[in-house]
Amino acid sequence: MKLSSLSRERIFALALIAPCFLFVVVFAFYPILYSFYLSLHRIILGIPSLGQPFTGLENYRDLLHDRIALHSLANTLLFVFISTFLEILFGLIIALVINRHFRGRGMVRAAILVPWAIPTVVSSQMWRFIFNDQYGLLNYILYGSDTSRYSAWLADPVYAFSAIVAADVWKTSSFAALLILAGLQVIPDELYEAARMDGAGAWQRFRRITLPLVKPAILVALLFRTMDAFRVFDLVFVMTQGGPADSTNVLQFYGYKKMFTEGLMGYGSTISVVVFLMALAVTLLYIRVMGKGMLKAENA
């Protein structure tokens, strides 16, 4: 009787998981595999007479010699590195602030989440206005009504790239903060009390207690942010379309252009597969590091 009820429970559990599993298979595994399949073919929508010849790894070889793809890759990596670093830094600072007890903390916590709750397309449009050369807020803050000194931020390759990073950092630092805050909240107060009795200063307490204990949370935030940063697309699409002079072109946007504008389905898929593999590699690396960190924390 007991056994049968257990197995019934197991069947029920499987039934519960099934839709979710099906969902992942249909919307994640299948497209990834299909992209990989497409990436091994030459498919040009504009020339259907070409057919869909199997070309093996030719697309991948072309990608290695595609100077724009390599340039976009460099942009992507730079973007990932800078934006993730800043997001984790600001996220940690924000988390430390809102972890303290003060009047109106609830309000501040809610307010900090606002940027993250705004859809990226909307916030990109907003930042595009802020950086506008004629009526942008940034110019107004810097130069007031002296319009002759107004600068066209998005027309300059270096500023345009920085603008994209700034918009991303503004938007997602709060997400990092949220994850890190969760980590901070599980640190028992007793540790701090004990440290204070032993005469540890604020910096020492941060270095010796907060940082080591919040490390797993930081790693989780880092993982999420890195993966997201690799897939940056909407900011570029709305704010610059990759310009000026490709200074903000990133791999995902380049792939989109190849696939949806130029109709190069095979080559475009190759780019998505490469982005996917890179994100996957980073994830595996993080998980390994994180797994070790977790084990150590448990043993201690």
């Binding site: 504009g46 390759p157 310009g243 000026p244 002079a245 490709d246 252009k257 504008t261 130029e262 109709g263």
Partner: peptide, 21 residues
């Protein structure tokens, strides 16, 4: 040409680079 979108992207990239830098 049926590949105009691809040709155009090359042109856009070249012109943008040439005039903005």
């Amino acid at each position: 040409t049926p590949l105009y979108p691809a040709v155009s992207n090359v042109l856009q990239r070249y012109f943008s680079k040439a005039i903005s830098d």
